[in-house]
């Protein structure tokens, strides 16, 4: 099953401007294979922009200008073909967005099909099942794989989006508040799965989260953004127990 062999994400002096306004102001950080980096910060601090630079989805915004260096392993993200960058990454978004015209099975299978990951139908079925199990959705949909996403609840649709990303077995998994619409029990199970995936597949996981509790539960490292600046970055335990920055303290206390 293993495909990811681990690739480090390095961000150096990253600056992003949208319509000339600075959104990220000289960010430096590293995310290592097999570990989970949680990015925290209040709304508008640049968290989503940061992960959209890593997979070059920022290119969809014609008014965005990006400066600095971002590497996935040896690949220079900012000068590479976006196609090559995105073949190394997968992303789960804040809002569930499974493709409405594809069945549950096909939504998960589309990535492996595009990447040529399955040699046979049996391979494909195995990947789909694995991804749905890791997303805590298999038991609920195993008898209705031909159904369409509109027949699922909001939380199920989000887990389907997660399965679609996991099925790629990416080297870098980017998650933008993936559990915002999911119930607490499923959230905990998904967090366990993410830990397993990071550990077993040596995937570099970068997760944007609003909740300090979630960061504490799953992250190995935490980066705190505030107003486009990286105000704190370090091992999760250190950041949570001994925050150095005032904003970090407020974020951890849930004040901002």
């Amino acid at each position: 099953m293993a495909r990811s062999d681990g690739t480090e994400v390095t961000v150096r002096n990253l600056r992003v401007y949208i319509s000339g306004r600075p959104i990220l102001k000289g960010i430096n950080l590293r995310a290592t294979p097999g570990s989970i980096l949680a990015i925290m910060g209040p709304s508008g601090s640049g968290k989503s922009t940061l992960i959209r630079v890593i997979n070059r989805l920022i290119d969809l915004n014609p008014s965005a200008t990006v400066e600095g260096e971002v590497y996935i392993g040896g690949l220079n993200v900012l000068s590479a073909d976006p196609y090559d960058v995105r073949r190394l990454t997968a992303m789960v978004f804040q809002e569930p967005n499974p493709f409405p015209h594809l069945s549950i099975f096909d939504n998960v299978a589309i990535g492996p099909k595009l990447h040529g990951l399955a040699k046979s139908r049996a391979d494909l079925e195995e990947i789909v099942r694995w991804a749905l199990e890791k997303s805590q959705l298999w038991e609920e949909v195993k008898d209705r794989l031909a159904d369409y996403p509109h027949q699922l609840s909001g939380g199920q649709r989000q887990r389907l989006s997660l399965a679609r990303a996991l099925a790629l077995k990416p080297k870098v998994l980017l998650l933008d508040e993936p559990t915002a619409n999911i119930d607490p029990v499923s959230t905990r199970k998904i967090e366990e799965s993410l830990r397993e995936i990071a550990r077993d597949l040596m995937t570099t996981v970068i997760i944007v989260t609003h909740t300090p509790q979630q960061a504490a539960r799953i992250a190995d490292y935490i980066a705190v953004l505030y107003n486009g600046e990286l105000v704190e970055y370090g091992p999760a335990r250190e950041v949570i127990l001994y925050p150095k920055n005032e904003f970090t303290k407020k974020i951890l206390e849930g004040v901002i």
């Binding site: 995105r86 990454t89 992303m91 967005n97 499974p98 594809l102 990535g111 679609r164 790629l168």
Partner: peptide, 22 residues
Amino acid sequence: SYREASLSLGTTKYEHFRIMLG
């Protein structure tokens, strides 16, 4: 969100267009 989802899968322009047309 659908465009982002499709592109994030590492689709070529043609593959992306096919998904969008679907």
